[in-house]
């Protein structure tokens, strides 16, 4: 399992080296290209700011009211049997619906437990292997006016569920 940690630490530096070396070998002005791309990233981050403010505010209200704790308490008997922290349940469902709303919940968990806690690590892994199924499906199918989606939803939910299970398993093995 230590191998995965090694991969984690090597991944970004490796991506840096490969991309920059490949760019240089093709005669690209890598610095100028980087700056050009960075401008796009900046716009992208600033664009999500209003959304993030709106959603984090809503999540802040929801959490400080105690509503999420009540929900977690109700579901905890089931989730505990699956070794799944009940604190993650609201996020697990929200993740399927809205990427920005689940980000709000994610940051809330980071603030409450810290990113290096077991919950913080599990939620990081889980967020990176799941998708906003309902949102993506409606956009993609609506764009071509398809109404009968057959087994798409079932398949996507199974894939996401498998991802959640794998996250729990790997986090238990490494940090559990």
């Amino acid at each position: 399992m230590q191998l995965l940690i090694v991969i984690s630490n090597l991944m970004l530096p490796l991506v840096f080296v490969i991309i920059i070396a490949h760019g240089l070998s093709k005669g690209i002005n890598v610095y100028d290209a980087f700056i050009e791309g960075a401008v796009e990233g900046m716009k992208c981050a600033v664009d999500i700011m209003p959304t993030l403010i709106g959603l984090m505010m809503a999540v802040g209200i929801l959490r400080s009211s105690g509503a999420l704790d009540i929900l977690s308490d109700i579901i905890s008997p089931i989730t505990e049997r699956l070794h799944y922290p009940s604190e993650l349940v609201p996020l697990t469902f929200m993740r399927l619906v809205s990427s920005s709303a689940s980000t709000g919940l994610l940051l809330d968990l980071f603030r409450q437990y810290g990113p290096d806690s077991y919950i913080g690590r599990l939620v990081s892994v889980m967020m990176s292997c799941t998708e906003t199924v309902f949102y993506t499906m409606s956009i993609y199918f609506m764009s071509v006016k398809i109404t009968k989606t057959r087994y798409t939803l079932a398949g996507a939910l199974i894939a996401n569920f498998a991802g959640v299970l794998a996250s729990v398993l790997i986090c238990k093995l490494i940090w559990g």
Binding site: L4, I5, P115, D116, M126, S128, T130, G155, G163, A166
Partner: peptide, 26 residues
């Protein structure tokens, strides 16, 4: 990293594993 993680990128490897599992399952 914003929330003060000592090693923000330590989740890349486990995340990669979980992503592979979910994609293979799909």
């Amino acid at each position: 990293s914003q929330y003060g993680s000592a090693n923000p990128s330590e989740v890349i490897g486990p995340g990669l594993f979980a992503t592979l599992v979910s994609t293979a399952a799909g």
